[in-house]
Design a protein around this nucleic acid. Structure first.
Lengths: 344, 344
DNA sequence: CCGCCGAAGTGTTACGTATAACGTCGAGGT
DNA sequence: ACCTCGACGTTATACGTAACACTTCGGCGG
């Protein structure tokens, strides 16, 4: 329904702005580019800016990218956005990116289980850099080919391939969990661990065993499950149904698994936290949606994304990326309590 | 640590491929473009393809976009990815997009509450079209200015501005919920509604009242809350604490609110479903993480994204977009049961 | 008065691609 | 023998931008 009078309101180019301001296209570029301060007199600059605003000029990003060879676009590789943690990582990265006129595109993983195609075939935009979670390990091979600046999230920092690392202090979080439970008097544990074996989960296991080992008289059994409520429930149910001395606390690698553990407890007629304590990890919205609310470790997901983007921007500017782990925090809620024996 | 022998492994261009294959750059474009079949002899084409593979040639998207004036990129505008529903919409859209060599960028909404900036300032990519949820209504004004093809998700279909609509049969879902509860014998209801007033929630309210009105002897009270577990709990708790005849069932606009309602019930010592039935909407992972599991309406979120992208691709091709609502399905689980009176 | 300098702009070019317009060459019809 | 035509390629060009190299000009020291 376009009127013939106004055939195509074609987007104005910098040349149109130049014409309107009575200057050359080069001058428009100098003014609007913002670099080269003092290169153009203030009166002329003002005229150019007014003309640009008048025409509603927006620079053509394709042309700019072609000219500059940079796209101001980063790729974020995560296993699945349906996991709230990664949705929050994205939010953090995108927010900081926007402040620096950067964009963030996502690696498409349709099935939610992991990457399906070569990111450089599927990611439409040309990329200036990549931020990748270690949980999306499958994609890393493909990434290795392209020599793009790479920031790794929550990965083994001794891997010197990437340009920078942004890590959470996962080990400290797990230590806080175990100390909390040991302090309550628990000695028999079940570790409901993730079935995938990435760095972040390896660290959880290691820290858990180390902290429990220090207690001397603590025992722990480990079962693994995919990050899924149903799978977690099943694994926990089987492990709890075992004859002999039942664990009094379940330490889960993740809030989702903890939700499964709570369901398993209810099915077996065990009351949380009176008869069984349960802890999670991540502090998702789920943690406070459950009843009782989960004792868990709060991970600053948005900050992970921010720091990842920050590191990438630093690398692109040739600055050194700030290293160092992000602190995590134990949040004690209603799913943990002293074990039955200690309350008698 | 780049070796001086191989100073910069600059990305090969179509001209490099042409040189390697002993043809002109135009021929490379003809062959690799895939259009114009038969325009180049098969032997030559083969030679070009081999050279391209050999050099690892990837077309420069910025240059292509500049030339064609199209970017094969769509913008998806949703309120927040931390809402699992929209994460799944994105997944569906991105999956279908990838099949058509399209990309999907997201409107950045850092705070999770809604869009923060002009999408055309912040979205880095130039766009071929927009897919927008009616729940991100704030952004629509900004969109109105740019005459881009627009597909609306879950919005008022009588609004003829957009090029196409993709709607869920929300009314049918709400009817199924009320019929289910009426069939169980409930007559006194609480409608825990969303505080935001977009089309999709207006339809829920309308369908609810219509269906309950048909029953003749049913009463309903409405309270509103933001889509948040804590807010939902608070609103439900206040509404349930009222003196007089308590509702026997809470119909929630959303699983998140339903989780809040369940928490409220537990705080007040009401057992779900024996003393109070609760229903949700969406069928998020949360619905089966709770105990009891939520009776809810399953929305095909991924399909919404797919259909949205499908419609956009159709519009871009000048084809008519397929209209028609997507069916939804009541999933009966453990959070609904006959009211106390009926079980005596 | 010459030469030089800085200030303020302008002309020009290249980025890599897709395609319109244009050769070229041999086969086939009349 | 001449024209036509299709098959197969090539040449040339434009997309919009950024930035290098250049011009113009007034001022100023020697």
């Amino acid at each position: 329904m376009t009127s013939p009078q106004q055939p195509v309101p074609a987007r104005p180019t910098s040349r149109d702005v130049a014409r309107a301001a009575g200057v050359s296209q080069a001058t428009v570029s100098l003014v609007l580019g913002g670099k080269w301060p003092g290169r153009v007199s203030e009166v002329t600059a003002q005229r150019v800016r007014e003309a640009a605003a008048e025409l509603g000029y927006r620079p053509n990003l394709a042309a700019r990218s072609l000219r500059l060879g940079r796209t101001r676009t980063a790729l974020l590789v995560v296993p699945a956005l349906t996991n709230e943690f990664f949705a929050r990582v994205y939010a953090g990265a995108a927010a900081l990116a926007a402040e620096h006129d950067f964009g963030v595109v996502l690696y498409p993983s349709p099935d939610g289980t992991g990457p399906a195609r070569d990111p450089f075939d599927s990611a439409r935009a040309a990329l200036d850099g990549v931020i990748a979670s270690s949980m999306a390990a499958d994609a890393l091979d493909a990434l290795h080919g392209a020599d793009l600046p790479l920031v790794m999230l929550d990965s083994d920092a001794s891997d010197t391939g990437p340009a920078a690392h942004v890590n959470l202090d996962i080990a400290d979080g797990m230590r806080q969990v175990t100390d909390h439970l040991l302090g309550l008097g628990h000695r028999r544990f079940l570790h409901l661990a993730s079935a995938v074996d990435t760095w972040t989960f390896a660290v959880r296991a290691e820290a858990l065993h180390e902290a429990l080992g220090a207690a001397g008289d603590a025992t722990v059994r480990t079962v693994r499950a995919p990050l899924d409520v149903g799978a977690g429930r099943e694994a926990a149910e089987q492990a709890l149904a075992v004859t002999g001395e039942r664990p009094t606390a379940i330490i889960c690698d993740d809030d989702i698994l903890a939700a499964g553990a709570c369901k398993a407890a209810r099915r077996l007629g065990l009351r949380v936290p009176d008869e069984l304590s349960v802890t999670g990890f991540d502090d998702l919205a789920l943690a406070t949606a459950l009843e009782p609310e989960l004792t868990t470790v709060r991970l600053p997901a948005e900050q992970v994304g921010e720091r990842g983007m920050e590191a990438l921007l630093a690398v692109l500017d040739g600055r050194p990326a700030e290293q160092g782990g992000l602190p995590v925090e134990l949040v004690v809620r209603g799913s943990t309590a002293p074990p039955p024996a200690a309350r008698a």
